[in-house]
């Protein structure tokens, strides 16, 4: 009962409790630093990410070029910061698109019994494809652009969100306050948003964090395979793709963006795990 009842004042508690756990605190702090680094990129570096310098091409890390330069003499550190902007914002947009699609499908499947079977089968069908394969197919069909990558990955990850929403909706739908709302003629759309959606935000938050991490990986994968965002725009994936050719002679071109992906994804996973531990068992226990 206590958990259902902790509506007000939940957010400050949650933040405090996330920071009280070493793993989730590490995740939260790291992801905050990564986001800040991306936002404050112009302040953290003197170079322009597209600035060529043939003289300095493939130079190893040095005080002048912190993480070295790539084959065209562009500063790897600078490009990494700017690439973070693209990678993070693409991934964030994917979470938004996946959530919009997933919440809609999940609410329909979970709340309206007749729609459950067809919508659930659609979700199952989408889940049956390997993530990257489906994304490649969609991008190939839609054309490679940042918008289409977001759309494609959004479609790929929507089923995960939809499953969580459906499962939670099935539980909430049967709770007395939903029945009470029906008995007092509250319109279905109000029940859906006010009474159902508001009460399943915790699992959505957890799932959103995991999708964020997955989307960073998937976007990097698509860029690496050359079906993603245009190679002119630095993302961690395109940087690795370029660096692959110089892997033995100039490993830093590939290593540091790779490290950025690992650190960011790991931080998000830790944060997601922390959120799930704090939010989900209480849901499971109380509903």
């Amino acid at each position: 009962m206590a958990a259902i009842a902790t509506g007000p004042g939940k957010t400050p508690n949650l933040l405090k409790r996330l920071l009280a756990r070493p793993t989730s605190a590490a995740g939260l702090i790291t992801i905050t630093l990564v986001v800040l680094a991306a936002i404050l990129a112009p302040l953290l570096t003197a170079y322009n990410p597209a600035q060529l310098s043939i003289v300095n091409r493939l130079s190893p890390p040095s005080p002048e070029f912190l993480l070295g330069t790539d084959d065209l003499g562009r500063d790897v550190f600078t490009r990494m910061l700017y690439a973070g902007r693209t990678s993070l914002s693409v991934a964030f947009a994917v979470v938004i698109v996946a959530s919009l699609l997933g919440i809609t499908l999940g609410l329909i499947a979970g709340f309206f019994r007749k729609a459950d079977a067809p919508v659930s089968r659609l979700i199952d069908a989408l889940m049956a494809f390997p993530d990257i394969l489906l994304a490649i197919a969609l991008v190939a069909a839609l054309g490679a652009s940042a918008f289409n990558v977001v759309l494609a990955l959004g479609i790929v990850y929507a089923p995960r969100m939809a499953r969580v929403v459906r499962a939670s909706t099935l539980v909430i739908r049967e709770l007395p306050y939903v029945e009470a709302a029906r008995a007092l003629a509250v319109p279905t759309r109000v029940i859906l948003f006010r009474h159902v959606l508001r009460n399943i935000t915790s699992p959505l938050l957890v799932q959103g964090t995991f999708i964020f991490a997955q989307a960073i990986l998937a976007e990097a994968g698509l860029s690496f395979l050359g079906v993603g965002i245009s190679p002119d725009i630095p993302t961690w994936g395109t940087m690795i793709s370029v660096g692959r050719q110089f892997m033995n002679s100039a490993g830093w071109i590939l290593f540091y963006p790779g490290l950025a992906i690992v650190v960011t994804v790991l931080a998000l996973q830790l944060l997601g795990d922390g959120l799930r531990d704090l939010l989900d068992p209480r849901l499971a226990k109380d509903i």
């Binding site: 259902i4 509506g7 007395p176 306050y177 029945e179 009470a180 008995a183 009460n199």
Partner: peptide, 12 residues
């Protein structure tokens, strides 16, 4: 209803 504990939405 019978259950006053769960007949109200906890978030409002």
């Amino acid at each position: 209803f019978q259950e006053p504990m769960t007949s109200l939405n906890p978030l409002y």
